[in-house]
């Protein structure tokens, strides 16, 4: 359900064979997709590996906040839908880890690096989901943002990632629609439900507009991530499209866009109406710039739920180790591990 990270380019492409690099870049410029057997710059290989790994991590950790609500879903159909949705996240994680695995890192190493905090996952999963309405908001806003992002990523240049993105997008349609149905149901419900939904909306609007990452640096279109079609659209342009779609939808539903301040636990302490929410002559809705200090603080590991999410992930990794050992050995006479 997540967007990929801004790819980090770890290696200077200038060290590559200039002829091969030129051919590679010409192919990409001509819309040719890169397949695993092709020559590719080391920076591209490592960059794609990390991007796919970050995306996979986000799916795996993204399963946790929603997973908390499976046991509490208020009808059998919602319970089934939420179970299926969280299952899809795990499936997406599995498929994306596979893309990275082919680029040179084992799944075991990726899961270990996730547990120890060496690699990251999407920031938005470090916020709490304290009510059922938060589940509705995650599926509507966060999955809605993810769909916008992943639709562009499916136009990327790396064949295995593109194939995976197509498959993932097919499932995202259900996630988004089910979230939309929940939000619509709550907002056509009781006074209490509407209030619960507004509060959840206040918690998730900020993380949703931060979802696409920090403001772009000047010239980013010419830098390798976009030049090599690892990333297709700028953060700011995706963000604007998101606001254009969701701000009027929220308003029509009776939700108010607020600029919020939050405490350490991720709960709103102060809010004021975002006055800018009216379209300009280009049809672009204005919005208050998110608090990027908060974004970077959460990314550095100091968000409301970072520690809790990683702890549960690590617990799962450690708790399941015996099962992986028991079946991976293939040797039924192995003594119990120490």
């Amino acid at each position: 359900m997540s967007g990929a990270a801004n790819p980090v380019m770890p290696i200077d492409p200038c060290q590559e064979d200039p002829e091969k690099l030129a051919e590679f870049e010409a192919n990409i410029a001509n819309g040719v997709l890169i397949e695993p057997g092709d020559w590719m710059p080391e920076a591209y290989r490592v960059g794609m590996l990390r991007m796919s790994e970050h995306h996979a991590n986000s799916e795996i950790v993204g399963a946790l906040p929603e997973g908390e609500w499976i046991t509490r879903a208020p009808s059998l159909r919602r319970k089934l839908a939420l179970t299926a949705k969280v299952q899809d996240e795990v499936g997406h994680g599995q498929m994306l880890y596979r893309v990275s695995q082919d680029l040179g890192k084992s799944r075991e190493d990726m899961l270990r690096d996730l547990c120890t905090g060496k690699t990251k996952y999407h920031n938005c999963f470090n916020y709490p989901a304290p009510t059922w309405a938060d589940i509705a908001m995650i599926q509507w806003l966060i999955d809605g943002a993810a769909i916008m992002n992943q639709k562009t990523l499916a136009d990327g240049a790396y064949g295995p990632y593109v194939r995976t993105m197509h498959r993932i997008n097919m499932e995202e349609a259900f996630h988004f629609k089910s979230g939309e149905d929940m939000v619509l149901t709550l907002m056509s419900g009781t006074k209490k439900q509407k209030q619960m939904t507004q509060e959840a909306f206040d918690r998730w609007w900020g993380p949703s507009i931060m979802f696409f990452g920090p403001p772009d640096k000047p010239g980013c279109e010419d830098m390798p991530p976009m030049r090599w079609r690892m990333k297709i659209e700028t953060n700011d342009s995706l963000r604007q499209r998101f606001v254009n779609r969701f701000a009027p939808a929220a308003r029509d539903l009776g939700l108010v866009v607020h600029v919020c301040e939050k405490n350490e636990e991720g709960f709103v302490t102060q809010k004021q109406v975002d006055e800018l929410c009216t379209p300009d002559e280009d049809g672009n809705w204005g919005f208050t710039t998110p608090n990027w200090d908060e974004f970077f603080k959460v990314i550095r590991g100091n968000g409301p739920c970072n520690a809790h999410r990683l702890a549960l992930r690590r617990f799962s990794y450690e708790q399941g180790a015996w099962v992986r050992r028991a079946i991976a050995s293939g040797d039924t006479t192995l003594p119990p591990a120490a």
Partner: peptide, 18 residues
């Protein structure tokens, strides 16, 4: 319950109200 089309009708109806 795990397909988008399982929700399309109900979503459309609810949107049409607002």
């Amino acid at each position: 319950y795990r397909m988008a089309r399982g929700y399309s009708k109900s979503v459309r109806m609810k949107w049409e109200a607002v």
